[in-house]
Write a protein that binds this DNA or RNA. Structure first.
Lengths: 209, 209
DNA sequence: GGCAACATTGGACCGAAGGACATGGCATCC
DNA sequence: GGATGCCATGTCCTTCGGTCCAATGTTGCC
């Protein structure tokens, strides 16, 4: 089992070398000759054709991860759809990169926690999973918590929500705290990202670098 | 030109009466008999078939507005798609309601400022407009501002964005301030709602009240 | 009755977010 | 050489967002 790193050259700060001292930088054409099933391949999302590369490597039995210097949900989706099983920031700490490699070598999917909220649900949706929509995520909430959560997702501030529901801002915070806890998000931003479905632009975009 | 108000009865706090003293509450079946082109009709989004009602009224030449006690983007879209040209909170101040009526009577579209961010872009897309996506909205931004904006939309905090772009949190705020100004949004939440495309669940849902 | 869950609010606390005002280094254009 | 625009940063200040530790009243269930 070997680990390779594919990039269009200009690798700025080879942080991955720290994580994978045994890995080697290789050009796509050279990789084709020596790739064996079970190898781990990291592909930089800096070339226009990286999704195709990922797809081919995956089909040939490699565990493929995509690295980027500017993580985005859209790109994460593209990566996962292309066959990658990991999507990480190129400057992630070595421990994190090793963790990701371990995961994908064991048939797992790995994305940064920040993107997780968007990806779960979105992927299952794309794969024909249940029509899961926000109602499902809101199920564990009480009536009041749901009302607050929905208002927040609409973009209202705590103060506005308070006015709207005719309660104190303090109470809004209380409900919201419960919402965060129950849904496992850290703040209202993550809540929005969680309850807002994946934008259609997230799938099939090819905005190269 | 008359103003009507259509509701399934139980109108709790008839705020609209303050705004439109000349308006009259009317049942849908009675309205059919006396509606003339140019009339203004307000429909409460409290009945399961309100979108159909709106559609019919609009086809018959009325300026239709939808009122709700719990504004939501999805419902706003449904309203606008059905043919309504206004979507307002039922407890909006009278001045605001009159403003809305004035607008729709003059072939305008009116939605609350809070929903505006979602609606612009989304509506025209839904109605078969240009394939406008987030890139278009990001056009007026500089390279750096774009990077910051995209990171924020991904859910990162200012501190995280700063680390990611290797700049000071202060600088992030500076760029972000410019982004808010250029895109006309008030804070990061509105930015997310603006740049996040309309959820697919927002279109064609019939989840009645 | 007691217990549990829910809704509501209070106060205090602290970090995040955003604006105001100002500075400096680079580019490019006239 | 200005003028302009972008990038980066600084300080100060205000507001907002979130959490912790409480307390009260309700409802429904065993």
């Amino acid at each position: 089992m070997a680990t390779y790193f594919v990039s269009q050259g200009h690798d700025e700060i080879p942080r991955w070398q720290e994580a994978f001292p045994d890995a080697r930088l290789i050009r796509p054409e050279d990789l084709k000759a020596r790739l064996v099933r079970g190898d781990c391949v990291w592909v930089m999302a800096d070339a226009p054709e990286w999704p195709e590369q990922v797809g081919e490597l995956q089909r040939r039995g490699a565990a493929v991860g995509v690295m980027t210097y500017s993580p985005a949900t859209a790109e994460a989706f593209q990566a996962l759809e292309s066959g990658a099983r990991a999507y990480v920031h190129a400057l992630s700490p070595p421990e994190l990169l090793r963790q990701a490699r371990l995961v994908i070598l064991n048939q797992g999917i790995w994305v940064p926690p920040e993107l997780m909220a968007r990806v779960v649900g979105g992927v299952f949706h794309a794969l024909g999973g249940s029509p899961r929509d926000r109602d499902e995520a809101l199920a564990p909430l009480t009536e009041r918590e749901r009302a607050v959560a929905l208002a927040v997702v609409e973009g209202y501030s705590n103060k506005e929500v308070a006015r709207r529901l005719d309660i104190t801002e303090r109470t809004v915070k209380a409900h919201l705290g419960a919402v965060f806890r129950k849904l496992g998000v850290r703040d209202r931003m993550q809540l929005v990202l969680r309850l807002t479905s994946v934008p259609e632009t997230a799938l099939g975009v090819g905005r190269g670098s």
